[in-house]
């Protein structure tokens, strides 16, 4: 860990200013990702701006009839918030499938969006990695890539975004509110994370100095028929190999609307509206679910140790859709 200075911001504007002025400065919220990476010398900020005391701690209603999650609400408080449980059980379930109780108490909703890949090589400064050191090469492509992406990869990087929470946010069509040196803006969730392309060093589309102030959940929460299926190498406290968040709006056996987002398979939570549209007005059958899986996984490519994910994801999608469908019967 390098040497850095520390300041605690009391207002959003000062926080933004401090990080804008100093290119090597970073925000720190729960600290669960940035400190981990600083100890590995992967992140080396010269200043940390502590944003945990900013007044962004509320879960409140938003103008669209949905909920607004303050960026500094902890993952645990979000998951156990009565309104989240009631209206967005998918989000609650997804958060609780991630990390550990301790980490969820620390991690913030804003910070969760920014967590970086768990690629072994990214974490290990002794190895080449384009994301960590652009141009140094990608060790994973011809190396050990069990946890790596099968969709949206590039020749530069095959890392995944490791978050569970973000998979639900993607499925729910959340909107991220940010504030920066040039004022406020809203980022649709699908535009928040990016694919690696030729610049794998960038995980998302947030600009220097911008701070996430809150996350808006639209009114529709798919609270009746939903599921989050997370497949991993042990029963808990492990990142997803493949995960599937599903929200269904059903009319009897017929699907009015379907949302399917995948985790663990790409540099961002993976959604494909065309695939979801295949279910619109169709019966909720395994047969139809398989078509969705085919469409979602179109173009999927394995790299050796992760090739199994293609088949696993296919089965997981079908299963998750079945699970979500069957909820109403209970």
């Amino acid at each position: 860990m390098n040497s850095f200075s520390y300041t605690r911001a009391q207002e959003v504007d000062t926080a933004v200013r401090e990080v804008t002025q100093d290119k090597a400065a970073k925000f720190i919220a729960g600290g669960t990702n940035i400190l981990d990476l600083m100890k590995e010398n992967v992140e080396r900020p010269d200043r940390l701006v502590d944003i945990t005391r900013l007044p962004l701690q509320q879960v409140e209603s938003n103008p669209e009839g949905g909920l607004r999650l303050g960026a500094l609400v902890s993952n645990a408080d979000t998951a156990y918030h009565p309104e989240v449980i009631e209206r967005y059980p998918l989000l609650s379930k997804t958060i609780l499938a991630g990390a550990s109780a301790q980490l969820r108490n620390m991690a913030t909703d804003g910070g969760n969006l920014f967590q970086r890949t768990r690629c072994y090589y990214f974490y290990d400064t002794a190895t080449p990695c384009n994301k960590r050191e652009p141009g140094s090469g990608c060790s994973a492509i011809n190396g050990y890539n069990r946890i790596h992406a099968i969709l949206g990869t590039s020749e530069q990087c095959i890392a995944t975004h490791p978050s569970d929470m973000c998979v639900a946010l993607a499925a729910l069509d959340a909107v991220v509110n940010v504030k920066g040196p040039e004022g406020e803006r809203q980022i649709k969730f699908e535009d928040f994370h990016r694919l690696p392309g030729n610049e794998p060093q960038y995980d998302n589309t947030v600009k220097t100095g911008e701070i996430v102030t809150s996350i808006d959940l639209p009114a529709e929460g798919f609270a009746k028929n939903y599921t989050y299926l997370k497949l991993r190498d042990r029963a808990s406290y492990a990142f997803a190999l493949v995960s599937v968040a599903v929200g269904l709006d059903l009319d009897g056996d017929t699907v009015r609307e379907a949302r399917v987002a995948l985790g663990g398979v790409a540099h961002k939570p993976w959604r494909k509206p065309e695939a979801e549209a295949l279910l619109k007005g169709q019966k909720a059958t395994k047969e139809n679910f398989r078509k969705v899986a085919d469409a979602l996984l179109q173009g999927a490519k394995g790299f050796g140790s992760n090739t199994f994910k293609i088949e696993l994801a296919h089965r997981a999608i079908v299963r998750a859709l079945v699970m979500a469908t069957e909820m109403k019967k209970k």
Partner: peptide, 9 residues
């Protein structure tokens, strides 16, 4: 990782 001869996990 046999290219690097290193335990990666």
């Amino acid at each position: 990782d046999h290219n690097l001869g290193r335990f990666m996990n």
